[in-house]
Structure formats: structure tokens, C-alpha cells
């Protein structure tokens, strides 16, 4: 519990640092490309087009889902995925990749994953902006439910941070964790209703699918952007469950982080 407080204190004390380093990170990442930051959008756009082609046109013959065209349904759910997938993968690498950069300074090490995640968040917000415009053009107007979107963005960020706090520490000790994380993410991606509806599965399977946090997040984004429902309240059991998962991850992650922090240099 004490470690968790220390992590929170360190994060809040470093907000300016995190945000500036995130900007630098985007700059460094894109400087060598002619199109620069555009790739942060172009890459997911191409992937989304392919998923729509295969899962929307190919498998569903472009049928809508609860009155919303498949393409919009998919876009609203998947935008969160690109952010979290990239955030968790790069965040897990962050400590062992960047440790030498900051080793000789008194650097708050728990901000390494958070600045990487924050840099991904900027791309996410930009992408979300473009998607919103697309939704507006097609008649899905902004509503009071957008307040809920803020909550879901925050929860996506928190969940990503909670996971990477733990995995970035473990990856320093055992590098294989990176591979484990990568595979797990792929499994969770296909087991969540991002590209297809889990409702089509036999009834007894559905509750287990809901244990996957991406289930809650994907549907939360959709409820806020397209369906105009108070998903947080309608599915309050899921809200409680996911907040619990995040809290638990933060608790374990911060304890692990502080346990190994002093010895990172021995493992790198």
C-alpha cells in the first residue's frame, strides 16, 4: 500500500516531466520519416481498413450491429485497442530500453513507462478526433454521453499504466516477459468483442468473455460514441470488477517496482 502511494506521489510530482518527455518521444520517433506524425494515424488506418474488409465485408456481409453499421461499431471499439496495445508493448520495454539513458541521473524511474504511454495517448486522442468527425458526418451527434468517454479514456490509460508498471519491472529481470505480454495481448484481442460480437457464442461462455478488460473498454467506447447509453451504470458489475482489477494490478505493480528498483542496474 505504501509503495502505491509512493508511485502516485512520484507520478503526480512528475506531470510536467512526463508530458515533455512524451512530446520528445514522438519527435524522436518520427523525425526520420518524411510524413512524420502522420504515420501515427496512417498505420492504424490501414489496419482498420483491412479488418473492416475481412470481418465486416467478408464475414458479416456488412450487416449492422444493434442498428449501427459494422464499420462504425468496429472503429469505436478498436481505436482504444491501438492505444493500449502499443502502450503496453512499448511500456513493457521502457525500463530496460531507457535505463541506461537515465541511469546516471536521479530520475523517477516509474515515469519511464508513463511517458511512453502518454506519447501513445496523444496519437490516440488525435485518432479519436478524426473518428468523431466521421461519426458526426454520419449522424451520430455529440451528446451528454461524451462525458462517459472521458471516463473510458482515463480508464484505458490507467489500465495500461497498471499493467506496464508490473510488466516493465518483470521484463528487466526476465526479458522473456516481453514475449509473454505480446502473446497474451494477441489472445485477448481476439477474445474480445473488438472485431466480432461475443454475444453469438453459447450463453455459458459469455460471462467468461466479460472477465477480459477489453470487453468492458470496447463496449464502453461504443456506448459513449454511438449507442448513447450509460454503460458505467448499466453494467455496474463490470465497472466494479474492472476498477478492482486495475487497483490490484497497481498494488502488485508498485510493490514489484520498488522491490527491484534499486537493483535494476544489476540486471541490465
Amino acid at each position: 500500500m505504501k509503495s502505491l502511494f509512493n508511485i502516485i506521489k512520484e507520478q503526480i510530482g512528475s506531470i510536467y516531466l512526463i508530458q515533455r518527455l512524451a512530446m520528445f518521444h514522438i519527435k524522436i520517433d518520427n523525425r526520420n520519416n518524411v510524413l512524420g506524425f502522420v504515420w501515427e494515424i496512417l498505420n492504424p488506418a490501414i489496419q482498420m481498413a483491412m479488418y473492416w474488409f475481412v470481418f465486416g465485408l467478408g464475414l458479416r456481409e456488412n450487416n449492422g450491429i444493434n442498428g449501427v453499421p459494422f464499420i462504425f461499431w468496429m472503429l469505436a471499439g478498436i481505436s482504444m485497442w491501438f492505444f493500449m496495445n502499443q502502450g503496453i508493448l512499448d511500456g513493457t520495454k521502457s525500463i530496460y530500453q531507457k535505463f541506461n539513458l537515465v541511469a546516471k541521473m536521479n530520475f523517477p524511474l516509474s515515469t519511464l513507462p508513463s511517458y511512453i504511454i502518454t506519447s501513445k495517448l496523444y496519437g490516440h486522442l488525435f485518432l479519436l478526433g478524426i473518428l468523431m468527425i466521421l461519426f458526426w458526418i454520419n449522424g451520430y451527434w455529440p451528446s451528454v454521453y461524451y462525458i462517459q468517454l472521458v471516463y473510458f479514456i482515463a480508464i484505458s490509460y490507467l489500465f495500461t499504466f497498471a499493467v506496464t508498471l508490473l510488466t516493465s519491472t518483470l521484463a528487466v529481470v526476465v526479458r522473456d516477459i516481453q514475449m509473454v505480454v505480446q502473446s497474451s495481448l494477441r489472445v485477448l484481442f481476439f477474445l474480445s468483442p473488438i472485431l466480432w460480437q461475443t454475444e453469438r457464442l453459447p450463453d455459458f461462455v459469455e460471462p467468461y468473455m466479460q472477465l477480459n478488460p477489453f470487453y468492458y473498454l470496447a463496449n464502453g467506447y461504443r456506448a459513449s460514441l454511438l449507442y448513447n447509453e450509460w454503460y458505467i451504470i448499466d453494467q455496474w458489475q463490470l465497472t466494479v470488477y474492472n476498477l478492482g482489477v486495475i487497483f490490484l494490478l497497481l498494488l502488485v505493480g508498485s510493490a514489484a517496482h520498488f522491490k527491484f528498483r534499486n537493483r535494476f542496474s544489476d540486471f541490465i
Partner: peptide, 10 residues
Amino acid sequence: AINAGLNNEL
């Protein structure tokens, strides 16, 4: 630490 913390792209 002279060489730590410099980035070539910047």
C-alpha cells in the same frame, strides 16, 4: 555524465 542522456535525433 557527459554522454548519458543525449539523443542523436534532437
